[in-house]
Write a protein that binds this DNA or RNA. Structure first.
Lengths: 139, 139
DNA sequence: TGATAAACCTACTTTGTTACTATGTTGAGT
DNA sequence: ACTCAACATAGTAACAAAGTAGGTTTATCA
């Protein structure tokens, strides 16, 4: 369901939040700390930067930093951006062609409810609650 | 996240609950009603039968029927059986090799919580609430 | 007992996505 | 100029999902 792209993205955002302190952090520093391939990490940082979650600066002294305060990022935002969608079934993805069985479908309500439950949960967790010690979200 | 296998399985279980009435329903009847390829549907019914959710009978007059009352199936059971697992991340799947970063991982709590939220929701819906009119589970 | 209906079994193909790699280009600082 | 580092584009390998094909066994009925 959540691929490595999304999982890495979340780890990276926490990493930058913890180690950034306002300065730009170069990619290779994050990669070595998180033990993620530089090249693969690059493709993830592109998504986060284009999505407005990170600020990238080229050249010496460059790197990435957050664009907002940690409390202004939710886990849901980060995952929706990097995963594309958190919809549990294809027919609920944004831009999906409307299902022909929509009106008679007895399962649609289940999927809509599941979608709501997932998004509500993930939107309730902000980045600042994950840095430092980190809260325990396992219920 | 939920593939067609799981989605079809749920639709099929509802179909059998609604049209069975204790009798065995042959595969081709379900397939034509649900507009699912017979051969593909077969592979799904094998899983449901081996998992003890359906009873299969060969020969003339044969087919499939439920093994339990509709109120004794939860959507969570059906999906876990057909999907293999509902774990939102690889490291939470049963039998997954323990993650090396487990102790330092700041995101593990998020995934555990998400797993709990998903399973709790789906285990709260029973098959009997989906037959006939069907309840609206979209919150 | 033979024909037929239906589940059961094994194996294959096709398609698409994920994860990852390789090579180059642009821009910022010293 | 030189170096650092983001940005861009293109490709590959591995895997799983979705669906297909053909054959085998078991039950019923005439």
């Amino acid at each position: 369901m959540i691929s490595t792209r999304g999982r890495y993205a979340l780890r990276v955002m926490i990493d930058i939040a913890e180690n950034g302190n306002g300065r730009y952090i170069p990619l290779d520093e994050i990669a070595s700390r998180q033990q993620i391939s530089e090249k693969y990490l690059e493709s993830i940082l592109v998504i986060l930067t284009r999505g407005g979650m990170l600020n990238g600066l080229r050249g010496k002294g460059g790197g990435y930093k957050l664009t907002k305060a940690t409390c202004d990022y939710t886990v849901g935002d980060i995952l929706r951006l990097t995963e594309g969608s958190l919809a549990p079934v294809a027919c609920l993805k944004e831009g999906a062609e409307p299902c022909a069985r929509q009106n008679e479908c007895k399962t649609l309500g289940v999927w809509k409810g599941l979608d709501t439950v997932i998004n509500n949960y993930l939107d309730g967790i902000t980045l600042d609650s994950l840095v430092g010690q980190g809260a325990d979200y396992s219920i």
